[in-house]
């Protein structure tokens, strides 16, 4: 049995819809939710999240995302939110101000997609001071040498990128994933979440057998973006159910 971590880009198509989406995901048993901070230049993301991010970045700021989390946490006290962001909005806010704000908003952990631990000394220190967890990525191209640096910098959990590539749906889970995750596990006692490209129940089932948590991003973002035409979030709920059942089956 693995944890289920869905992802959404906050503010796409708008904040009200994002609130509805989060309510549905919590109802359907999400263990944690990744809140994507919109950024104008989402270079690590594939077309689905990149365009959602670009749309939302027109009006949604990092501060808006904190306020969004605060609104939900009033009702769902203590629910673990993971902020998924690019570094520049943090840098612009100021690293210490960001860490304090994240703490105040009740954010559980932060993942900065373009901030490797080698450049993260000040950030990690500020986050530690404010008791907000720092999640770093591990990928198939990460060397053992660097894996050590990453595990040392990570608190909370490690996020394993299931394939070399940008975010997005893929047709099947990489065959080498079992071995890769086992190699990481040998070097750390931190829980391991696996994401990038997991889009349906079958893939979630496979990954649940290997990882502690399963992250589903682009598949949700794609369904949410269809809300603009369908005015319905039924498909989001259906996918959440499908993934939830799959992650519990293992």
């Amino acid at each position: 049995m693995a944890k289920f971590i869905p992802f959404l880009v906050v503010g796409d198509p708008d904040l009200d819809t994002s609130i509805k989406v989060v309510e549905i995901l919590i109802e359907e048993g999400a263990d944690m939710i990744e809140l994507g901070v919109p950024f104008s230049d989402a270079m690590a993301d594939g077309p689905v999240i990149q365009s959602a991010s670009e749309r939302a970045a027109q009006s949604i700021t990092l501060e808006n995302v904190f306020q969004f989390a605060e609104t939900i946490l009033k009702k769902h006290h203590g629910f673990p939110f993971v902020l998924f962001t690019y570094y520049n909005p943090i840098f612009k806010m100021g690293i210490e101000a960001f860490a304090k704000r994240a703490k105040k908003a009740g954010i559980d952990a932060v993942l900065v997609v373009d901030l490797p631990p080698e450049e993260a000394a000040m950030y990690s220190q500020a986050m530690k001071m404010n008791q907000v967890k720092t999640v770093f990525l591990v990928s198939p191209t990460t060397s053992k040498e660097r894996l050590k640096i990453i595990t040392q910098a990570s608190t909370g959990f490690l996020y394993y990128v299931s394939r070399a590539g940008v975010t997005g749906v893929q047709s099947e889970v990489s065959k080498s994933l079992t071995r890769e995750v086992a190699e990481v596990r040998a070097l750390t006692s931190l829980p391991i979440a696996v994401g990038f490209g997991i889009s349906n129940g079958e893939q979630a089932r496979q990954v649940s057998g290997i990882a502690d948590s399963v992250v589903v991003g682009s598949a949700f973002v794609k369904l949410i973006s269809e809300f603009r035409t369908t005015q319905s979030l039924d498909s989001v709920r259906a996918l959440a159910k499908e993934i939830r059942i799959a992650t519990q089956s293992q």
Binding site: M43, A44, Y87, V113, D114, L115, P116, E118, E119, F136, L137, V138, S139, P140, T141, T142, S143, R146, I150, V161, A164, G165
Partner: peptide, 14 residues
């Protein structure tokens, strides 16, 4: 300067 890259590119950049 620096090297603010997604993890997958860190190995290749090194």
């Amino acid at each position: 300067g620096g090297r603010f890259a997604p993890e997958t590119l860190m190995g290749p950049l090194i």
